[in-house]
Amino acid sequence: MTLLLRRTASQRVQKAPSIDSFYPFWFYIPAGVVYGLMFLVPTFASFYFSLTHWTLFDQRFIGLDNFREFFAEPFLLRGLINTFIFGFTTSAGKVALGMMLAVLLTSNIYLRSLLRSVIFFPVLVSTIGIGITFTVLMEPHQGVINTALQYMGIQGPRWLTSPSLAIYSVALVEIWRGVGLATLILIAGLVSIPTDYYEAARLDGANAWQQFWRITVPLSRPAVATVITLSLIDGLRTFDLVWAMTRGGPGFSSDVLASVIYKQYQAGFYGLSTAGNVTLFLVIAVVALPIVAYLNREES
């Protein structure tokens, strides 16, 4: 009986948590503090200030009046539609073009490393600089793009001055700007696929197209999911490229949610623009989270 009590006491002593058992969790504290200060505090502050009429020196709680006024904005629906058009168009374009470039740049071609650097280079350039440059290139009368089309006997469109074409023109520039990062991620996914699968497929008589659809596409799903997620979130919250190229014009035809919010901020409606930011945050969450959950479920 005494021996049994000693064993029980010894087991209790061994199971008692010591200060050393919490040691690994100490490393979370700096990251948690930075995350709280840089993300959680501003997020909750935005939710609070969206319910107030505020300036730099004063604030007054007004409830949901900012949201009612924001949703009554006459061009909000146009901005919301353009946000979805831009987000889904650029995401699909980056995935499709990025996959083609990734397959090309993982094959045995001449100057492969140089071409990878060239494809990635636009990612390193300022978005505002890219927007200003393409505004000049897409000028309908003297721009380089339409001038080159004229030499081929093609009448170039009014890229940025046509209400029905402006948002798609900006989307094309965004695809060109961001496809380098998508290609880099997809290259990492392709090179991680074991070559044994391709050798077995060739022995079974599969051609290159069958290998792509039966091996490359399924096994690169994690990389594709990452590209879709990053591209979609980046496209839904876009502002800088649209503002640099069209400022939401002509008229309000290429406005996105972020540019509508910025125009309210320019007019001095700080509480209204904060409510718009909260709305944009919720829109991105509602659209992106189910897609991310679906992609992760398919991956698993």
Rank of each mutant, 00 (worst) to 15 (best):
F49G: 02
T90E: 02
N207W: 07
L165G: 01
V217F: 05
I291E: 03
M100Y: 13
F252S: 12
V41T: 15
W176G: 01
I167N: 00
A166P: 00
P24C: 06
L280R: 03
F57P: 00
V34D: 15
F22I: 12
R12F: 08
I85L: 06
I187R: 00
L257E: 10
S91Q: 14
A225L: 05
A258N: 07
Y294R: 07
V95K: 09
Y262C: 02
L40F: 10
G98T: 04
G178W: 15
L80N: 01
F70N: 00
P122Y: 06
L241C: 13
Y35S: 15
D240M: 11
R78Y: 04
Y294H: 09
M99V: 03
V144I: 13
V118K: 05
Y168A: 00
H53F: 00
F22A: 08
L257H: 01
G63F: 14
D58C: 07
V179G: 10
S18R: 11
L115P: 11
Q266T: 05
A288R: 03
Q11N: 13
L257T: 02
Y262P: 06
N207I: 10
G178L: 10
R12T: 11
F49H: 12
K263T: 04
T83F: 03
M245D: 01
A182S: 09
Q14E: 15
I291L: 07
M1K: 07
L40Y: 12
S46T: 13
Y265S: 01
A102S: 12
I261P: 03
G156M: 04
R68M: 08
V13L: 15
W209M: 12
